[in-house]
Design a binder for these strands. Structure first.
Lengths: 238, 238
DNA sequence: ACCTGAACACCGTTCAAGT
DNA sequence: ACCTGAACACCGTTCAAGT
């Protein structure tokens, strides 16, 4: 037997056995460094110990690579959603999981905020959200619109938070400080509401805001179901 | 009289009288071209008939220029909101106006989705939204959180739509077609909800989705006010 | 069949030199 | 005081050449 092992033969130079999976995993390692390390093709080559342009053997361009990376992270989110939750619980778990991975891999979350991956795990997300809005009591065109409302909103939320992490730490610090600096010093006559609430505005946390945004989607679905029930003359129920 | 006119003296070379306002207006002209014409410093120099680097005499960097451009467009949105609207009408007018300018100047709307301009017109927006949630019946920390929910959500929505317009037309076409192609061909056993609603999913319009998202914010505020009223033992009202 | 590396056509920004 | 233009340190991507 000429081959001493049944693992795949490796090429002569170390680190030159590129596969789509290896490239995706290297991408995730770079993406996890956030604003400290730009996600560039050249950096990816470094991380892989290969020439940067070798990536183009496995992905058409950077965009296609990012879509594949995004679909991978989406799969991890879906796999972590527990069984047996009701529709609200499933939407909350999807929202929390999506935010978590978007903050862990900001460049991925940010790039995908306005995209469709059209890859396997995206179909699973669509199926999940559609199932939730139908379990809530919507169907047909109503279910379709409310699915898009939830799907696009979640993407926009986590994309916004992720994009923020990609700014220079200095820029972020200035943005955050504005609530306790610039907004405290506004003209009280011209801006009475800001003046009145300046303390509370500085105390709001990102998590509170995210929670409110997710609950707003759930409330909107519940209210829509309720409105349709009343409008159809059926008993108001609960 | 040596000067034939009382307009400001122009320098020797044509087009070299740069001012912050002239640069902002040239930026808006380029931004209005969307994905057809990238918003770069070199293009801006071309548009102004000046050397690209002359811009750095008037703005620290491209980011500061974009913040100023964004504040300008925000001012136009605010000036177009009619007087005498109730809180829901004001929020709807703000949402519609913001979407309109974001779609007109995609690079501006997209860049600002996760930023704070800390410029005059942003203060006016904060004051407007705070006034709306207070008129709805919230105050203190509740008003602050719900202001942030509305403000961040509107930015995220319009930023998402604007960013989408910056993709190549080919990419956009593929994304849009997916609802009538890939999503119609999914496995019916594995994805029963998608299969059931594939027709309706393809028919949803961006405007319907935007409407649903804005109304969700309004509904969430109303419900929060209602919940607090009941919780405090006051009469349920309405 | 896959990887390499020079090269191309771009970016934002700096800085010495002009006027 | 302001503008110019060469230059720097980057980008994503292509393609002929290697193995």
């Amino acid at each position: 037997m000429p081959k001493p092992s049944d693992t795949p033969v490796r090429s002569k130079r170390a680190g030159s056995q590129l596969t789509p999976d290896a490239i995706i995993e290297a991408s995730l390692r770079i993406a996890a460094r956030g604003s400290e390390d730009a996600f560039t093709v050249r950096r990816l080559g470094e991380e892989l110990g290969a020439d940067p342009t070798a990536i183009y053997r496995h992905f058409r361009d950077k965009d296609e690579l990012l879509l594949s990376v995004a679909d991978r992270t989406l799969g991890e989110v879906l796999d972590r959603i527990p069984e047996g939750l009701d529709w609200k619980g499933r939407l909350r778990a999807l929202a929390d999981g999506s935010l978590e991975v978007a903050l862990k891999y900001p460049v991925v979350g940010s790039t995908m905020a306005s995209r469709t991956t059209r890859r396997p795990n995206e179909f699973r997300v669509v199926e999940l959200i559609l199932g939730a809005v139908m379990e809530a009591g919507l169907d047909g065109a109503e279910a379709a619109v409310h699915y898009r409302m939830v799907g696009d909103s979640l993407l926009a939320y986590v994309g916004q938070r992720a994009a923020y992490l990609l700014f220079d730490p200095d820029v972020r610090a200035a943005d955050e400080a504005s609530w306790s600096r610039e907004y405290r010093l506004v003209d009280a006559q011209g801006f009475p509401n800001i003046t009145r609430l300046s303390t509370q505005l500085a105390e709001v946390t990102d998590d509170e805001i995210f929670r409110a945004r997710v609950e707003a989607l759930i409330t909107a679905i519940e209210q829509r179901v309720e409105t349709l029930r009343r409008g159809q003359g059926a008993s108001a129920g609960v």
